[in-house]
Simulated assay, not measured.
Amino acid sequence: MERRSCWPLILCLIVAMIMGLLGYMHFNRELLNKLTNEIEFVEAAERETKHSIENYNLAAENTQKEMNNAEKEVKELQDEVGKLTSSKEEKDKEVKACKDSVTVLNDDVTAVEKEKSDTDGNFAGEKTKWSEEMNGLKQKLQESSPVCAHAKITPKDIEKDPTLKDLCPQIQHGTKEDLPH
């Protein structure tokens, strides 16, 4: 009997062990599922990270290319600015020379205008003086001179010296009858 009574106990122990093994297997399966899900999540995160890194690398390459192109453009623009600066300096020198030339010409023009103004003033004064003197001389010519009144000038004398007529305008040409015989 004793052997029979052990069998249920062994059977219970075997069932308990099987149940324990089944629980352990279920626990391990749940753990395995959980780990599989975590692995899939990590793999998805890794794929997304790889994708992000690839995008970042492409963006970095594009940015580097753009920076290289920008540096080339900056160098070209700096070269062009250098050329334009030297050209500008030459033009500035030319402008300064022109301004200096204009200043000299303006000084010359001012001097010439002053000289002309002085000359015009002197000319006006001289002209007035000469006009007064000419008017005085004309007036004297028109006045009858006492010498001309006593002078006996014949038409032959006037023919010989026509200036006599200018000196004594009041002398009239006489006719042949007035001439002495």
Rank of each mutant, 00 (worst) to 15 (best):
E2W: 02
S5N: 00
C6Q: 09
C6S: 09
P8R: 04
P8W: 02
I10T: 09
C12W: 01
L13Y: 07
I14V: 15
V15H: 05
M17Q: 12
I18V: 12
M19R: 05
M19V: 13
G20N: 07
G20E: 03
L21W: 01
L21M: 10
G23K: 03
Y24F: 12
H26N: 07
F27R: 13
N28Y: 08
N28Q: 14
E30S: 12
L31T: 11
L32K: 14
N33A: 13
N33K: 13
L35N: 11
L35G: 08
E43R: 12
A45G: 05
A45Y: 00
R47Q: 07
E48T: 07
T49N: 05
K50I: 06
H51Q: 06
E54D: 06
N55M: 10
N55G: 07
N57M: 04
N62H: 07
N62F: 04
N62I: 11
T63S: 10
T63P: 00
K65I: 13
E66A: 15
E66K: 13
M67V: 11
N69M: 08
E71Y: 00
K72L: 07
E73Y: 01
V74M: 08
E76C: 02
L77R: 09
Q78C: 05
E80C: 01
G82N: 12
G82V: 06
K83D: 04
K83I: 13
K83M: 11
L84V: 09
S86I: 11
S87M: 06
E89K: 12
E90C: 01
D92E: 05
K93E: 03
E94H: 02
V95G: 03
A97S: 03
C98E: 04
D100W: 02
D100R: 06
V102E: 05
V102F: 01
V102Q: 06
L105P: 04
N106Q: 15
D107I: 14
D107H: 14
D108W: 00
D108H: 10
D108V: 14
V109C: 08
V109Y: 09
T110Y: 08
A111M: 13
V112R: 13
E113N: 15
K114Q: 14
E115C: 07
E115F: 06
K116C: 05
S117L: 13
D118N: 14
T119S: 10
D120I: 15
D120N: 10
G121C: 08
G121H: 09
F123I: 15
A124Y: 01
G125H: 11
T128V: 15
T128N: 14
K129W: 00
W130H: 12
E132C: 11
N135P: 01
G136F: 06
L137N: 02
Q139Y: 01
Q139P: 03
E143I: 01
S145D: 10
V147T: 02
C148N: 02
C148S: 03
C148L: 02
K152F: 02
T154K: 11
D157G: 05
D157L: 13
D161L: 08
D161K: 07
D161N: 13
T163C: 00
L164N: 00
K165G: 06
K165A: 15
K165Q: 15
D166Q: 08
L167Q: 00
C168N: 03
C168M: 03
Q170H: 07
Q170N: 12
I171M: 09
I171W: 05
H173M: 15
H173I: 15
E177I: 09
E177F: 00
D178I: 08
D178E: 11
L179F: 06
P180Q: 09
H181A: 14
